[in-house]
Design a protein around this nucleic acid. Structure first.
Lengths: 350, 350
DNA sequence: CATAGACGCGAGAGCGCTCTCAACGGAACC
DNA sequence: GGTTCCGTTGAGAGCGCTCTCGCGTCTATG
């Protein structure tokens, strides 16, 4: 096979048509007779021609790519590799992209580099960008500049978004812990600049208020070590702790370790609920009771919205978060699953 | 701010220079006086101009992107989300890409779609492509077609590669298990089409032969459930099993669970060694002794090689795999760490 | 002082594609 | 037969940039 660079001109010439017609066929545009269409298609297949993406993008203004944008809190990019969450997002996006020949570009930047990233994304947008837990302000700026944008996670009101019911899930988790007998419940949260973390914090707070429990919370930075440190500190400051809600499984894993290292037992002394139901949840011992976040589905939904151009300014799609009961909340906890949707206190909540 | 599309022409005009000069400044090309350079830079900054990537790519033949290529075994794309390995690869690539304004494109395809993917990558190569555990044959085809390619993991002889010492690590792991007293050691391997899996399998085989142990091995598909199923089967078929080497931590985690569920204890009855030292390794109970794969560093090295154009046909870089001893091989196992490099049997080995 | 070379700069020709517009032929209508 | 109209096709003008080439200026060299 020869690897001389093929152009649409070669195809047109070979097929005995004009460049314009070849282009029409390539783009499945109407207004070409069946015969010519077939002829061009044949030549394309025979020669193994693939249109040059750059030229196409330049001429049409369109892009064959979709951007995934992750803004790292405090510029700490390493969380990307440490959190299973992100690869689930990518997997979800890729699933939705399969078949399309849109490609995925992954952009991870610290918030300091966000303006530059916005420009970069802006100039190449067509399929659009999926913003992963980007702060509402930043999301609004992305939206203003790039238009085709969907936020994964809560965001500014006019920015299209796919939202997990973070707040409700955290609310449920706390209530669940209360129901199985915990009276001294602490939360280990994620960094404030993460919208998911904020939502879970809000749900925790509301539940705790309603139940008349003290608001005990620390930041674990969405990391295992952070969870370990947080739990260690909580244990020291609140010796009577009997329940921990961690805003992600990695932190929950760290917390379980800390509890064990401190000579206490999970779930006997302290019950632990995680969040995400990531791959680690089942690996922890005891396996984590956790709030299952349908990350892949959410990412896929965001991607599809982008592909279909359905991302109207106020477009919004909510995803329920389901509780998965394992052993970190005790052997009989499954019997105490929360009622499907406790209507009362939660009316109007997301 | 106005969002009219800026072109290099605008910049040139504003700065009172020609398009060519503006282009030179933007590309930091030599042959421009300091004064004009400054003037252009100022205008660029003032107007917030960013060159159009598509036009640049078209005109220069260069690309501002780097491809990450993952070929899923048996077309099973879901492994991507389930294995922490991949997000570590991405993290490593992104780390090396930070500062450059090269973007990362993630391509995941089943082997059936590989030819199409090759074409897609070929037509846009400049920074090049990092092939993640792609089979030697496929890697060779990528290399033939796309040139600038680096394989992550063992590959065809002439394809540039970053290789972990998989075989040696597996060899060490088995010997370690033997040294701590295991005499009936089984391996849970990854799928054959994965080059890393193959390397680990080879090391296991060699060690087992040298030690005069039986070759007991099953495939766990690099998944937790696979590890669980494999261990369950192994336990049933070889009741006297006293050591398991799993080719990744996820499978090791599954194995530990299976062992526990079968009423046996880790490490007392059966010692377990994992591979990767991924985030789950420390979460498992007992924490996994594992072979630390410097995934991020390897991915970064591959990326840098691509960026620097240093990927000569036979270019190769090896990364040692370090053993991390935790509790899944017994409390005193750390004392029995293998000598730094047992020269004898391993001479010439990678 | 003439010539050569070095340097800085601009003109202009593409890169490979898309898309508008005009032209053409044939069918339908008056 | 003339007109209109539609479906089909090709010509050609860009898209925004890079890069070669040549021109003019300025400094060494004989």
């Amino acid at each position: 096979m020869t690897y001389r660079k093929l152009t649409i001109e070669d195809i047109a010439h070979q097929a005995g048509v004009s460049r314009a017609t070849a282009s029409r066929v390539l783009n499945k545009a109407p207004g070409v007779s069946a015969e010519l269409r077939m002829r061009v298609d044949r030549v394309v297949a025979d020669l193994g021609y693939r249109p040059n993406a750059a030229a196409r993008a330049l001429a049409s203004g369109r892009r064959d790519a979709l951007d995934l944008v992750v803004i790292a809190c405090h510029g700490d990019i390493s969380l990307f590799g440490a959190q299973p969450y992100y690869s689930r997002v990518i997997a979800g996006v890729l699933a939705a992209l399969a078949g399309t020949d849109t490609q995925l570009r992954v952009n991870v930047a610290g918030s300091a580099d966000a303006p530059e990233l916005i420009e970069r994304v802006a100039q190449s947008v067509t399929a659009g960008a999926v913003l992963v837990n980007v702060s509402p302000e930043l999301a609004a700026r992305f939206h203003a500049r790039c238009r085709r944008v969907v936020s994964l996670g809560a965001t500014a009101a006019h920015v299209p978004a796919v939202e997990p019911e973070n707040s409700r899930a955290a609310y449920d988790a706390i209530n669940f812990l209360h129901r199985i007998g915990c009276r001294r419940i602490a939360a280990i949260h994620g960094p404030d600049c993460n919208t998911c973390a904020a939502g879970r914090r809000a749900g925790h707070l509301e539940a705790v208020r309603e139940l008349g429990l003290p608001d005990i919370a620390v930041d674990g930075g969405f990391r295992r070590e952070g969870g370990y440190a947080a739990a260690t500190r909580l244990l020291a400051e609140h010796p009577d702790l009997d329940g921990i809600f961690a805003a992600c499984d990695m932190m929950a894993a760290g917390a379980v370790q800390a509890i064990t290292d401190a000579g206490r037992r999970v779930p006997d002394d302290i019950a632990v609920v995680g969040f995400d139901d990531s791959a680690v949840a089942a690996c922890v011992s005891p396996p984590l009771t956790t709030m299952r976040l349908p990350v892949e589905q959410m990412a896929a939904a965001a991607t599809r919205a982008l592909l279909e151009g359905a991302a109207a300014p106020h477009w919004r799609r909510f995803f329920p978060v389901e509780m998965v009961v394992r052993n970190s909340t005790g052997p009989d906890a499954a019997l105490l699953l929360p009622p499907a949707h406790p209507v009362s206190a939660l009316a109007g909540r997301r």
